[in-house]
Amino acid sequence: MTVAAGKLVRMAEQITANLAHTDDYGIVSAKVADHLNRFWDPRMRQALLEYAGREANSLSPALRMALPQLRDGGE
Protein backbone atom coordinates (compact mmCIF):
# COMPACT_ATOMS: atom_id res chain seq x y z
CA MET A 1 0.00 0.00 0.00
CA THR A 2 1.36 3.41 -0.93
CA VAL A 3 0.00 6.92 -0.58
CA ALA A 4 -3.72 6.70 0.25
CA ALA A 5 -5.83 6.38 -2.89
CA GLY A 6 -8.06 9.31 -1.96
CA LYS A 7 -5.07 11.62 -1.87
CA LEU A 8 -3.68 10.30 -5.14
CA VAL A 9 -6.98 10.86 -6.89
CA ARG A 10 -7.20 14.37 -5.51
CA MET A 11 -3.67 15.13 -6.72
CA ALA A 12 -4.34 13.59 -10.14
CA GLU A 13 -7.53 15.58 -10.52
CA GLN A 14 -5.69 18.79 -9.56
CA ILE A 15 -3.08 18.03 -12.22
CA THR A 16 -5.83 17.44 -14.74
CA ALA A 17 -7.71 20.63 -13.87
CA ASN A 18 -4.56 22.75 -14.11
CA LEU A 19 -3.58 21.31 -17.47
CA ALA A 20 -7.11 21.66 -18.87
CA HIS A 21 -6.81 24.94 -20.75
CA THR A 22 -8.91 23.43 -23.55
CA ASP A 23 -11.96 21.18 -23.79
CA ASP A 24 -10.04 18.77 -26.03
CA TYR A 25 -9.62 15.76 -23.72
CA GLY A 26 -7.16 14.22 -26.13
CA ILE A 27 -4.69 17.07 -25.62
CA VAL A 28 -5.29 17.33 -21.89
CA SER A 29 -5.05 13.61 -21.19
CA ALA A 30 -1.74 13.38 -23.04
CA LYS A 31 -0.34 16.17 -20.86
CA VAL A 32 -1.67 14.55 -17.70
CA ALA A 33 -0.14 11.18 -18.60
CA ASP A 34 3.19 12.80 -19.43
CA HIS A 35 3.18 14.62 -16.09
CA LEU A 36 2.38 11.49 -14.09
CA ASN A 37 4.98 9.49 -15.99
CA ARG A 38 7.68 12.08 -15.44
CA PHE A 39 7.07 12.97 -11.83
CA TRP A 40 5.25 10.23 -9.97
CA ASP A 41 6.83 7.25 -8.30
CA PRO A 42 5.60 4.14 -10.18
CA ARG A 43 3.97 2.86 -6.97
CA MET A 44 1.70 5.88 -6.98
CA ARG A 45 0.79 5.36 -10.64
CA GLN A 46 0.02 1.72 -9.88
CA ALA A 47 -2.19 2.65 -6.94
CA LEU A 48 -4.04 5.17 -9.08
CA LEU A 49 -4.62 2.53 -11.75
CA GLU A 50 -5.88 0.07 -9.16
CA TYR A 51 -8.28 2.66 -7.83
CA ALA A 52 -9.45 3.46 -11.34
CA GLY A 53 -10.07 -0.23 -11.91
CA ARG A 54 -12.60 -0.14 -9.10
CA GLU A 55 -13.98 3.40 -9.34
CA ALA A 56 -13.37 4.56 -12.89
CA ASN A 57 -16.64 6.45 -13.06
CA SER A 58 -15.68 8.75 -10.22
CA LEU A 59 -12.75 10.16 -12.22
CA SER A 60 -12.97 13.10 -14.59
CA PRO A 61 -13.08 12.18 -18.29
CA ALA A 62 -9.67 13.64 -19.13
CA LEU A 63 -8.02 11.80 -16.26
CA ARG A 64 -9.72 8.56 -17.30
CA MET A 65 -8.37 9.01 -20.79
CA ALA A 66 -4.88 9.58 -19.39
CA LEU A 67 -4.72 6.29 -17.51
CA PRO A 68 -4.06 3.95 -20.45
CA GLN A 69 -1.09 6.17 -21.33
CA LEU A 70 0.62 5.57 -18.00
CA ARG A 71 3.81 3.57 -18.25
CA ASP A 72 4.98 0.75 -16.07
CA GLY A 73 2.05 0.54 -13.71
CA GLY A 74 3.92 -1.46 -11.13
CA GLU A 75 7.18 -3.25 -10.83
Partner: peptide, 15 residues
Protein backbone atom coordinates in the same frame (compact mmCIF):
# COMPACT_ATOMS: atom_id res chain seq x y z
CA UNK B 1 12.08 5.92 -12.42
CA UNK B 2 11.25 8.73 -9.99
CA UNK B 3 11.06 8.11 -6.29
CA UNK B 4 8.95 9.73 -3.59
CA UNK B 5 8.76 13.42 -2.87
CA UNK B 6 8.78 14.48 0.80
CA UNK B 7 4.98 14.56 1.17
CA UNK B 8 4.73 11.21 -0.63
CA UNK B 9 7.28 9.77 1.84
CA UNK B 10 5.14 10.91 4.76
CA UNK B 11 1.93 9.60 3.25
CA UNK B 12 3.61 6.28 2.51
CA UNK B 13 4.96 6.17 6.07
CA UNK B 14 1.46 6.54 7.45
CA UNK B 15 0.33 3.82 5.04
Amino acid sequence: KPGYRIPNMFDAAIA
